[in-house]
Nucleic acid binder design. Structure first.
Lengths: 338, 338
DNA sequence: ACAGTATGAACGGACACTTGA
DNA sequence: CTCAAGTGTCCGTTCATACTG
């Protein structure tokens, strides 16, 4: 067994530099009232010892950990890991670290548990990524810690950042309609997903506004496999000439099913995806889709949270930031056949 | 501004329960020598007050945070986010939380910085995901904190968990050779990637052992775009009948480029990928690839780390766990033309 | 002597004061 | 009276030790 490694303390640095621990504290916190010559001496003593302020001790007295909690149910969803990455970077540049927890399920109870685990760890604020509270929509979290919700259900009382699903889904649907399709089918994400519901709603209203018939919504689970399964059914209906799919993965599966049934994309059927994952331009055919800026979402979450931290909790009630998506037209959409 | 929220302390609970704070501490830590009746009284007092032990104070005295640090350069790589997810889950069930940091670059300096940031935060152990130290391969991390390296350069002195790249790459290459191809080209990942180098090495030695000619290695950057660019060049060489691509994303781009050049997969060229991302079975054609079990890697990392924590640091020198990948044969590989 | 409980250090750092020029 | 540097007490827990019926 290696002997226990004892990290150097303020006192050790102070001793080496020949000053009091208070002065070391001042240097560490970049206070003004310390002589430049002394400062240098302390700094080099820190260097020599490899001193790192003990965050536990600091947090104990300041009450702040400089740590952000992130609750994310699934990292396998493309958008979530991108958002997390952006959050991590933004937090880091602001001098915060990120504490990640995944709730056991998407129930209010599990959420509350994850939440209190985080507050118990002493986080200064919490970001919930794509938080769907399935069983109890109006979850009241214990207050005291600022919260920001990313791409989640905004029925709540917390500020939120969201990709503007309405704009994206409308652009997708309108693009297809503009190409001359009589109407547009919709393969949606799971019904319990807030984003999926928003996309479906915008698709619906765009159709309505255009006076187009509204086909029954189809539901997948975001996976390529579910897109494939639905695609097989859809391929049998020759009326289907345009499908707006709620994410790129499902679109991939759908296209495969259509092709296998002898229906070419975009010749017979136009397909549009959502997300614009880095691979979608290399699909066969290259996928027309809606680009989402997850990096921006992550950055916004952090800055909103930091604002709350700085100015007291939730200055102006329910704040809501929207990030605008962008239609990316590639080769999976075309005018209808004949 | 809302009034400052002051969390209840041990002392508050003690006062309410009519015991000393010491007793509360015993209850919180599930010590034996507490009267059951007293214990219940304390427990309900905790309930009422919503007491959560202050982890800063606890960590200050115990020196342990029950927190694992994870260093991951990029979460956009499929494998990394999967591994992280698994780590997070495993850590959670063991009662640990996860502190995530992304180093600014893959240099020894940035790594050391990330590392010391984590130790400063008081993590009990650190997992480095896909840690390539580019400028200074034999990075000596300050000791005192157990470390496990996942899918990284094992020249180091830390236990590591790795997908067995040799087995996977050999299986891929042998599969192609077995189909009757005279030899197999290789589109590798970036040269600074340890995994990429391992795959290339195994491809090389498999070719050698079979007495097959060894074409020059091609290098991509893991992205579909780079696979596409290389694919355009490769398509011109009619000798190319089989390509082993170091990941599925690049394989997607490569196939697109081949198709555009009029070379059908697998009729004219066989392509095999690596990773088995969930979408690869829905590519056109469905991609033959090598499945990696990232979940297992994540779990192993945590259990190795926890072992070190329990039994003192690094019981038996350099430990190395290997997770065996699996060849998944789909439809992008076939015997060579003619 | 024994169960259970109370007591007073630390732990490392920040902050309000105080002191010395 | 300003500016640098030092002193003392506290943050919430745990642990060793002393205490009590």
């Amino acid at each position: 067994m290696t002997e226990t490694f004892k990290p150097p303390s303020q006192a050790d640095v102070a001793a080496l530099a020949g000053v009091s621990s208070q002065t070391v504290s001042r240097v560490a916190n970049e206070r003004s009232n310390v002589d430049e010559e002394t400062r240098q001496r302390v700094l080099s003593a820190m260097q020599v010892l490899g001193y790192r302020p003990n965050s536990a001790a600091r947090a104990l007295v300041t009450g702040r950990f400089r740590m952000l909690g992130v609750i994310s149910f699934s990292l396998s969803a493309h958008g979530n890991s991108r958002t997390l990455q952006a959050i991590s970077e933004a937090a880091q540049t602001a001098g915060y670290s990120v504490n990640l927890v995944g709730p056991e399920s998407q129930t209010g109870g599990a959420m509350r548990k994850a939440f209190s685990k985080l507050t118990g760890q002493g986080v200064d604020g919490i970001i919930m990524i794509e938080a769907q509270i399935l069983d109890h929509p109006d979850l009241r979290l214990p207050s005291g810690v600022p919260v920001v919700v990313a791409d989640g259900d905004p029925d709540q009382l917390h500020p939120s950042v969201d990709n503007n699903q309405a704009v994206g889904a409308e652009a997708a649907t309108a693009h297809l309609l503009g190409l001359g399709h009589r109407t547009v089918w919709h393969l949606a994400g799971p019904q319990d997903s807030y984003s999926a519901r928003r996309r479906a709603a915008a698709w619906f209203s765009t159709l309505k506004r255009a006076g187009a018939p509204v086909p029954a919504v189809l539901y997948g689970d975001w996976s390529a496999g579910s897109g494939y399964a639905i695609g097989r059914r859809l391929a049998e209906d020759k009326d289907v000439t345009a499908v707006f799919v709620a994410n790129d993965h499902m679109a991939l599966g759908l296209i495969k099913a259509l092709r296998e049934a002898g229906r070419e994309v975009p010749r017979d059927v136009s397909v549009i995806g959502y997300d614009d994952i880095p691979e979608s331009g290399f699909f066969h055919p290259p996928l027309t889709t809606v680009h989402q800026d997850f990096e921006e979402v992550g950055r916004l979450c952090v800055s909103l949270l930091l604002d709350q931290l700085a100015h007291g909790h939730r200055p102006g009630g329910e704040e809501r930031s929207m990030v605008t998506p962008q239609l990316v037209v590639r080769e999976s959409t075309a005018p209808p056949p004949r």
